[in-house]
Design a protein around this nucleic acid. Structure first.
Lengths: 253, 253
DNA sequence: CGCTAACTTGAACGCCATCAATGCTTGTGG
DNA sequence: CCACAAGCATTGATGGCGTTCAAGTTAGCG
């Protein structure tokens, strides 16, 4: 999965210039940094590994480094006693560890085993001031993450469980596509509980929801970690959510 | 409300360097641009006005300009038939009109009468490449908006109506503070329906929710557009949401 | 001063959270 | 290689909260 080359070359940021009219939500994102930039970033970065379930940093701690994922998946989450909330899942080529007032705004935990670059903030900062092109690339990436967060909010605003789940699956599918992976099946590296904490439902509701989607023929559950979209039409009709849930039966056209 | 000076001087971006450990959510944000930068931006910008309810741009249109609010409030929203969803409310000194693949990701509508700078994207872009300091300021602003969007998602993930409303009011209060306005009362420029579309509830539930908060002594409703926080303790206990709503009666300690 | 849009209040139904028990699977040590 | 354990996931039953539909009330604006 990890080509040795990708580590040797240095950090990778995938995004699109938000002002250029590339098209389609399904488009693959470009690697923004050239080899030279990657080498220079690699000089100030170090490679770190985390086991599944490992805590990478905690909300509120001093933000001394940002991370760039090489392989694996992490979750950024608030650690609110009596109810976690996941703000984002982060995948290879994503940046995380951006701070607010010098401190991490979320906690970060490895969902799968993770390899990442750790880049000290101090070094990155001084690099930024002298490198307008790199700055511009960071802006592009931030715009993308902002859109992503807005999409999350959009998902959460849906009042019906099925609608949320469908939007969640669409999101994962699109992210897989953007990374250049196959979208023939959707990979769910996280637990039902994680999904629940991301989409704002109980884990039981997530489980039931998937089953109902399967019953209605919208998806096919291959196993706990993989689903496919069986009927794109039904699938998207549920996303559109005229009235997302409805018990069963009435295919109200 | 609008000092003539602020128009003459040029665009204003308020944010904080996310890597500097200023403290407190209640802190006032700094104006990032110096007079010289503002003048140069003013040279490529024009001042535009919108009436209350006016549509500024529509989701999916070509994004030819970004806007910087001088006075008034706008909402950024998805225009989904059968259920609007508001992504953000934007206030003076905010930037909006950032695009995705060359097109606006949301629609924008004036909630109150609005005065704003309109800055053509083409001119801004060429300015950015030659001005690392300005780029850095844009990065700061984007980080802030990203945090804001994550806070919105956090709000939406709450399962209880009262908890969402309290978080919404806290958000408005904090934004007022950051702009240097008084926080003795919270101003609600938008309709109940707008609030509902932001917090993911029906407008009736918003109305009822405010009333229940008032009944419990957490807030005081001065009129349709103004509330104050009557009891900060109760208020924040509801935000923490042990079990947010509960009918009435049982003041469970 | 009347009209219209915004807001409040009421009643009933239905979805989802919650509690509880059972089933599956993954990995570890015998 | 098998057995067991511990997490993870599914399934079931019940009740509470919020949506929805429906009036009625207030307030802003001509």
């Amino acid at each position: 999965m990890i080509s040795a080359g990708s580590i040797l070359k240095g950090p990778t940021i995938r995004a699109a210039d938000p002002w250029i009219s590339g098209n389609k939500a399904t488009s693959k994102l470009r690697q923004l940094l050239n080899d030279d930039e990657r080498r220079r970033l690699a000089a100030i970065a170090s490679v770190v590994r985390f086991k599944k379930g490992a805590k990478i940093y905690q909300e509120g701690n001093r933000a001394d480094a940002v991370f760039n994922i090489i392989s694996g998946v992490i979750k950024a989450h608030k650690t609110d006693p009596g109810g976690e909330q996941i703000a984002a899942f982060l995948f290879p080529d994503d940046l995380f560890g951006l701070s607010e007032q010098g401190r991490y705004a979320n906690s970060a935990t490895a969902v799968t085993p993770v390899t990442a670059f750790e880049i000290p903030v101090s070094a990155l900062r001084s690099k930024l001031v002298h490198d307008p092109a790199l700055e511009f690339h960071v802006i592009c990436k931030l715009c993308l993450e902002l859109r992503q967060a807005q999409r999350h909010a959009f998902l959460l605003s849906r009042r019906h469980a099925l609608s949320r789940l469908v939007l969640f699956l669409q999101m994962l599918e699109q992210l897989q596509g953007a990374r250049g992976e196959s979208t023939s099946q959707i990979y769910l590296p996280m637990t039902r509980s994680d999904i629940g904490e991301y989409v704002g439902m109980s884990l039981e509701a997530v489980s039931r929801g998937f089953r109902i989607l399967a019953t209605r023929g919208a998806i096919k559950i291959l196993n706990r970690r993989h689903v496919t979209i069986a009927n794109r039409g039904t699938f998207e009709k549920i996303a559109a959510d005229p009235n997302g849930s409805l018990g069963l039966g009435s295919t109200v056209q």
